[in-house]
Design a protein around this nucleic acid. Structure first.
Length: 489
RNA sequence: GGUGUCAUGGCCGAGCGGUUAGGCAGAGGUCUGCAAAACCUCGUACAGCGGUUCGAAUCCGCUUGACACCUCCA
C-alpha cells in the first residue's frame, strides 16, 4: 500500500499526506447554513469528505472530523437591512429562529443518513460558540489587526497584507480586490473596502443578537469556522475542506484570522470539492436552480424523470472526481443507477462463488490498482473502473472460464467488501438481514417453489400469472439456469 | 476588469509524452416455453490553428467557447 496523495489548494499540487500528529488526524469541513432544504449541491462535499473520513480511518488513523452547522451570522444580500439569514426566514414563517434552524438541522441529518454519510465526530453550532468567537476577535484586536467602528469590528486587511499575504489561498492581490467591491451596508464604516466584519452591530429589528464588548450583535461571516476549528482541533490542524465557492472570501479570511490571532497558518492541507451544475450552470441557492435531495428521492420535481434512490445519488457523485464539475442530467443519473446495480449484482455473485484447486486470478494486483487509484487524490472514477474490471473477472469465474483458489477467493471477497461497504460507503439495502427481509425471502422461496411446480407441468398460465402479479407488486422474477431468483424492481 | 478551472466518441466521465480507461446507451451473440434479467463481444474520441518531439488527448503559444470566484452560497 503506497502513500496517500492529496491535492492541496494552498500549494496547488498533490502532496503526500503526512499528519501533524500521527496517528491522529484533525479534519474540519464547512457544513450547511440551515435556512433551507438540503439540495444536490450539499451532497457533494458531504459525500466527498465522508469518503476522506472513511478512508483515513481505513488507513488506521484516529480521525476527529468536525463539520459545523451555520445557524447565525450570514448576511442576506438582497436585504438592505443586513439582517441575519435565519432571522429573515424566521420572520417569514412566524417561527423562532432556533426553531427554523432545528427544523433544517433535523432534515439535513435525515438526508445525510439516507445517503449513508457518517456522522462527524463533532458537529458544532455557530450559535453555541459565540463566546469563543468573541475571544478570538479580542485577540485579533489586541494584535492590531482589527478596529472598532460604530459598534462593529472590522478586520484590517491592508495592515494584514503589509505583513502577510492576503490572497495566499485564492491567488488574489489586494490591489485587485480594492478596485472591485460592491457597495453594501456598513461600507462607510470600513477603512478599506476589502475589510470584512469580525463582529457586526445588530440593527434594532434584528432578532438574533448577543452581547459583546463592542455592541449587541452577531459574529462576522468567517469567525465561526476559525473559532470552532481552533477550539476542537487546535492550530494548526491537518485538513480543512469545503466547496470551491468558499475559497474566497470565506477560507481566505479564515487563514487571515488565524494568522492574526495565533500567528500560525491554521491548516496544512486545504481541500475543495467542485460544484454540481445543472445545464452547465452551478446549482445554487441564490440561482434558484437547485433540486432538493428529497425531491430526488421522491422524484417530485419537474426536471426529474423518475425518483432516484439515495445510493444512486451517492454513486453518481463518486463516479466523478471531486475536483471536477459534475453536471446533473436524468440520463447521467440513470446510467449511474444501472452501473451501480451491475456492480452490486457482481458482489452477490462473488459471495456465492466456489473455489477451484487452481488459480488464475492475481488478486494482489487488483488490490494494488484499487489502492493506487484512491491514493491518487481520491480518484474514485478510476477506482470504479478497476472495480468493473474485477466484475468481468468475477463473472468469468462464475461461468467457469476462470479459476480461483480458496485463498484468493477469500482475499477478493474481503477486498470488494472493504471497498464497497467500508470505503465507498455504498449501502446494499436490498439484501439487508432485518427480520422483515428474512420473512419476505422465505415467502418468496415458497412462491418460487409453487411456480416451479407449475412450470414443471408446463402450466405456463399459472407460471406467468405469478410472475406478472409479482411484478405489479414490485418484485422481479428472473429465471436463471440454477432456478428462479427474485429482486425488488 | 482581476483570479482560477475546463473543453475527450450519442450521453456521463478518467487520462499528466508511447500500451484497452470505465459506465450508460446502441449493435451482435449466449441462455430461455415466452419474457425479463444476467453474461460475452464490438466503437477508436480527444474544440481549432501553429509549435516542441522519433512520437502529443497529454508539453508550449495563439484562437474560439464554457464555467467558477471576486456578494450570502456546498
Amino acid at each position: 500500500m503506497r502513500t496517500l496523495y492529496l491535492y492541496n489548494t494552498l500549494t496547488r499540487k498533490k502532496e503526500p499526506f503526512e499528519p501533524l500528529h500521527p496517528p491522529t488526524v484533525g479534519m474540519y469541513v464547512c457544513g450547511p447554513t440551515v435556512y433551507g432544504e438540503g439540495h444536490l449541491g450539499h451532497a457533494r462535499p458531504a459525500i466527498t469528505f465522508d469518503l476522506v473520513f472513511r478512508y483515513l480511518r481505513h488507513l488506521g488513523y484516529k480521525v476527529r472530523y468536525v463539520r459545523n452547522i451555520t445557524d447565525v451570522g450570514h448576511l442576506e444580500n438582497d436585504a438592505d437591512t443586513g439582517e441575519d439569514k435565519i432571522a429573515k426566514k424566521a420572520r417569514l414563517e412566524q417561527l423562532e429562529p432556533m426553531e427554523v434552524a432545528q427544523n433544517y438541522i433535523n432534515s439535513y441529518h435525515h438526508t445525510m443518513h439516507q445517503l449513508n454519510v457518517c456522522d462527524p465526530s463533532i458537529e458544532p453550532l455557530a450559535s453555541g460558540h459565540i463566546i469563543e468567537q468573541i475571544e478570538m476577535v479580542e485577540k485579533i484586536i489586541k494584535n492590531g489587526y482589527a478596529y472598532l467602528s460604530q459598534g462593529s469590528v472590522y478586520f484590517d486587511v491592508e495592515k494584514y497584507n503589509s505583513l502577510h499575504h492576503y490572497g495566499i489561498l485564492s491567488g488574489r492581490k489586494l490591489e485587485d480586490l480594492v478596485a472591485n467591491t460592491r457597495t453594501l451596508e456598513g461600507q462607510q464604516e470600513k477603512h478599506n473596502p476589502a475589510d470584512f466584519a469580525l463582529w457586526k452591530k445588530a440593527n434594532p429589528e434584528h432578532i438574533m443578537r448577543w452581547k459583546s464588548p463592542w455592541s449587541e450583535g452577531f459574529p462576522g461571516w468567517h469567525m465561526e469556522c476559525s473559532a470552532m476549528g481552533a477550539k476542537y482541533l487546535g492550530l494548526p490542524f491537518d485538513i480543512h475542506g469545503g466547496g470551491m465557492d468558499l475559497k474566497f472570501p470565506h477560507h481566505e479570511s479564515e487563514i487571515a484570522q488565524a494568522v492574526a490571532a495565533e500567528n500560525t497558518q491554521p491548516v496544512k492541507y486545504w481541500m475543495h470539492n467542485n460544484m454540481v451544475t445543472i445545464n452547465g450552470q452551478k446549482m445554487g441557492k441564490s440561482l434558484g436552480n437547485f433540486i432538493t435531495l428529497n425531491e430526488f428521492f421522491t422524484g417530485k420535481h419537474p426536471a426529474l424523470e423518475m425518483a432516484y434512490a439515495p445510493m444512486t445519488i451517492r454513486f453518481f457523485i463518486l463516479q466523478a472526481h471531486y475536483r471536477s464539475e459534475l453536471d446533473f442530467s436524468n440520463e447521467a443519473l440513470q446510467a449511474s443507477e444501472k452501473g451501480m446495480k451491475r456492480l452490486i449484482t457482481a458482489l452477490e455473485t462473488l459471495k456465492n462463488l466456489s473455489p477451484s484447486e487452481t488459480n488464475q486470478v492475481d488478486v494482489s494486483s487488483i488490490k494494488n490498482r484499487f489502492y493506487e487509484a484512491i491514493n491518487d487524490d481520491f480518484n474514485t472514477p478510476v477506482l470504479l473502473a478497476h472495480m468493473y474490471d474485477g466484475v468481468r473477472i468475477i463473472n468469468s469465474i462464475r461461468d467457469g472460464k476462470t479459476t480461483i483458489d480458496a485463498e484468493n477467493l477469500g482475499f477478493l471477497q474481503s477486498l470488494y467488501d472493504t471497498f464497497v461497504t467500508e470505503i465507498l460507503g455504498l449501502h446494499i439495502e436490498s439484501i439487508g438481514s432485518s427480520g422483515d427481509e428474512k420473512m419476505l425471502d422465505k415467502l418468496m422461496q415458497m412462491v418460487i417453489e409453487l411456480r416451479k411446480e407449475a412450470r414443471e407441468k408446463k402450466d405456463w398460465n399459472t407460471s406467468d400469472k405469478i410472475r406478472d402479479d409479482l411484478k405489479k407488486a414490485g418484485i422481479q422474477i428472473k429465471d436463471t439456469r440454477d432456478g428462479a431468483e427474485w429482486s425488488r424492481l
